[in-house]
Simulated scan of single mutants.
Amino acid sequence: MQISAAVADGGHHKPAPRPNLARRKVAGRALVAIASLGGLFVLLVQILHTTGTIRAGFTDWRPILYAYLLWSIALGVGQVMIRGERGLRALFLLPAVLFTIAVVIFPTLFGFYIASLDWNLSSLEGPHFNGLDNLIALFNDTYYWNALGNMLFYTLAVLAEYAIAFGLALLLNTDIRARKFFRVVFLLPLMLSPVAVSWMIGKSLMEYRFGPAATLARSLGWDNPAFFAHPWIARGSIDAMDAWVSIPFIMIILLAGLQALPKEVLEAAKVDGANGWQSFWHVTFPIMLPVSITVLIIRIIFKLKLADIVINVTAGGPGGATDTVSSFIYRVYRDRSNVGYGTGLAIFYLLLIIVFLSVLLRLTSRRMQKVA
């Protein structure tokens, strides 16, 4: 009877409600909200103090770092309180997210802030807010737009680099003698620094008085072989040096793609009577299209950052003919000591790159879908 009563009592027993769970979620959301508002308040006070809007503030930006660390801790604790077990799993991703915010998002936002300042290092007044004056000066800067025009030439030259690299990759993918030796030799330029290349080739090999390239050009009938005096010749010479360094990178990626091609497809094309060109254009090239698009986009990204060869060889000359946006921004910092304007140029260029690459990726994605 006692056992039956115990069983009966157990059957009528119900688990107690858990009001603490709801309270914990509310407390977690409140913790995250308070920490976020506190961090934004500290950041706003420092920005207003730096721009001279208010007198109260901090002498440096170190309190912003402390506020960010406290916000990070509060965010982690809040996630656990709100989401429980899932919040604990999210803590493994939280360091990567916080690192991205710290080294990517915050510097970008801080760059927008600096771009709104009139900050010249040679001035004793220090930085002060000037609104959109840097943006207005940017649109009226003919040298900056000239550099953007040069970037169009350098970017289109990537197609020629791709064609040469594809030809070399096809050559090294065939059964030729000393194939491994040629693979190593063709990769040697990739191992050199662009700065070393600019001095070894631009300052020595192509030196117009005693350089070997100039001597050879004179023997071929060029009276004044100045590779960096005429705008188009100078622009082509700069791009040739950059291509010499970068073509091996494109070649090795394409070679890896060619070696991964299914041999059955190529053999089937030969059985169907396709010659070498038809096999390449209708079989090899379409299959290699994903690899080609990937390596082209990567190469374009690197090309958009071209600066070191230009800075060391021509410094943008003659008359800005070889200037890139990066080399021009470098001179704005170095020669004018204008931090605010230089940062504004860099931010505007970054936005152009984002728009350009977004459109390029959209177009290539549509092209890939048509091929598929």
Rank of each mutant, 00 (worst) to 15 (best):
G10D: 13
L21V: 15
L21R: 07
L21D: 08
A33Y: 10
I34R: 07
S36C: 11
V42I: 10
V42N: 02
V45I: 09
L65Q: 13
Y66A: 14
A67E: 02
L69I: 14
L75C: 13
G76L: 03
R86S: 14
L91M: 04
L93N: 11
A96Q: 01
A102W: 03
I105V: 15
D118R: 12
G126A: 07
I136F: 15
A137T: 08
A147P: 01
T155C: 04
L156E: 14
L156R: 04
L170C: 08
L170V: 07
I176D: 07
R177C: 06
R177Q: 11
F181N: 03
L187R: 11
M191F: 13
L192Q: 13
V197N: 00
M206R: 01
Y208S: 12
Y208V: 10
L216R: 02
P225A: 01
H230W: 11
G236E: 04
M241G: 00
A243L: 02
I250P: 02
I253F: 10
L254F: 00
L255D: 00
A256Y: 04
A260Q: 12
E264M: 14
E267A: 02
A269F: 01
Q278C: 13
S292I: 09
V295L: 03
K303V: 15
L306D: 06
A307M: 07
I309K: 01
V313W: 00
A315E: 10
P318F: 06
V325D: 01
S326F: 12
D335R: 08
R336W: 09
N338W: 01
Y341T: 00
F348L: 07
I353Q: 11
L357K: 06
R362G: 10
L363K: 14
T364I: 12
